[in-house]
Computed example of a mutant assay.
Amino acid sequence: MAEQTPSRNARRNQLIVGLIVGVLVGVGVSLWTSFWLWLPAGIVVGVVTGLLMRPPAEK
């Protein structure tokens, strides 16, 4: 099987999804613990996850 590289658009969408999930998790944990620094931590985790994960291959 040949490896298919994901398109730029798929990578950008993956990063945007990671960012949105990071913001939601950061806001949720910040509200739950009432400690505001969880918001930037959630954003960073979301961005890193979006960068590291491989988008699904287009068929």
Rank of each mutant, 00 (worst) to 15 (best):
G50R: 02
P55S: 09
S30P: 05
G18R: 00
M1P: 06
A57I: 04
P56T: 11
E3V: 12
V25Q: 09
V45K: 07
L19C: 08
V21Q: 04
Q4W: 03
P6R: 00
I16V: 06
V44S: 13
L52V: 12
V44H: 08
P6H: 00
G26F: 05
L19K: 01
T49F: 08
L51G: 07
G26T: 07
P56Y: 05
V48W: 08
L51H: 06
L31Y: 10
W36M: 15
L39F: 09
M1C: 08
M53P: 00
V23K: 02
P55W: 04
W32R: 05
K59R: 14
S7Q: 02
W38K: 07
G26H: 05
W36F: 14
M1W: 10
R12V: 10
M1H: 10
S7L: 04
T49W: 05
R8A: 14
W38L: 09
N9D: 14
R12G: 07
V44I: 14
W38G: 07
V17F: 02
I16A: 08
A41L: 15
W38I: 03
F35A: 11
P40H: 09
G42L: 07
R8V: 10
S34N: 13
E3Q: 15
W36S: 15
L52A: 14
V44N: 08
L15D: 07
T33A: 05
G50L: 04
R54D: 04
R8P: 06
V23F: 07
N9W: 15
W38A: 09
E58Y: 00
G22A: 06
V17T: 12
V21S: 08
G46P: 03
I20L: 12
S7G: 08
V44F: 13
M1Y: 11
E58G: 01
T49A: 13
A10P: 00
R54H: 05
R8Q: 13
G50T: 04
V27A: 14
R8D: 12
E3T: 11
P6T: 01
I20D: 06
I20C: 11
M1K: 10
L31K: 14
I16H: 00
Q14W: 01
G26I: 03
V48Y: 09
Q14L: 06
V29Q: 05
W32V: 12
L19I: 14
I43G: 14
V29N: 00
V21N: 05
Q4I: 13
L37C: 08
R54F: 00
V23R: 00
L24W: 07
V27M: 14
L19R: 05
A41H: 13
W32H: 10
M53Q: 13
L39W: 06
L24V: 13
R12Y: 08
L39P: 10
V21G: 06
L51I: 13
V44Y: 13
V48S: 09
G42H: 04
R12I: 13
W32K: 10
L52K: 09
L15G: 08
Q4R: 11
V44P: 06
Q4C: 06
R12S: 13
N9H: 14
A41Q: 10
G46Y: 00
V45F: 15
E3Y: 09
E58Q: 02
G46F: 03
W38P: 05
L15V: 15
A2L: 11
V45T: 15
G22T: 03
G18D: 03
G26A: 13
I43H: 11
W38F: 15
W36G: 15
V45E: 10
V21R: 02
F35K: 15
V23G: 04
T49S: 11
Q14F: 01
Q14Y: 02
I43W: 08
